[in-house]
């Protein structure tokens, strides 16, 4: 995990179970994610898992902030979702060029 950046400890509920991120924490995580994505876009990186070393080099600070603000499972999920979304949009564009019509 990110060196120096410490994740805020999850709040504990009255029965001792950790509480899920609340609305504020979620939006902080999404904000950090979008900044990280922006950096990846700038350096032409789509898959930050496959291009781990390059991403760590050029987007070090953004990556640390992303990991500091989001749970580990969320970080992995968002990194994979970025690739899936890209592929989905590519497919949609391709279909549109081929003259496919939007349902609905």
């Amino acid at each position: 995990m990110g060196a120096g950046a410490s994740k805020p400890a999850p709040k504990i509920s009255s029965d001792g179970t950790p509480i899920a991120p609340d609305r504020t924490q979620r939006s902080q995580c999404w904000e950090a994610r979008d900044i990280y994505y922006g950096c990846l876009d700038k350096h032409d990186i789509l898959d930050s898992i496959a291009e781990k070393d390059k991403a760590a080099r050029v987007c070090a600070a953004e990556g640390r902030a992303f990991e500091a603000n989001c749970a580990e499972s969320w970080v992995t999920y968002f990194k994979k979702r970025r690739i899936a979304e890209y592929k989905k949009n590519k497919t949609l564009e391709k279909l549109k060029v081929e003259g496919a019509q939007d349902l609905r």
């Binding site: 509920s13 009255s14 029965d15 179970t17 950790p18 899920a20």
Partner: peptide
């Protein structure tokens, strides 16, 4: 496992 009544209440 993680969504106990107390967790759901605050969420």
């Amino acid at each position: 496992a993680r969504d106990t009544p107390a967790v759901l209440a605050s969420y």
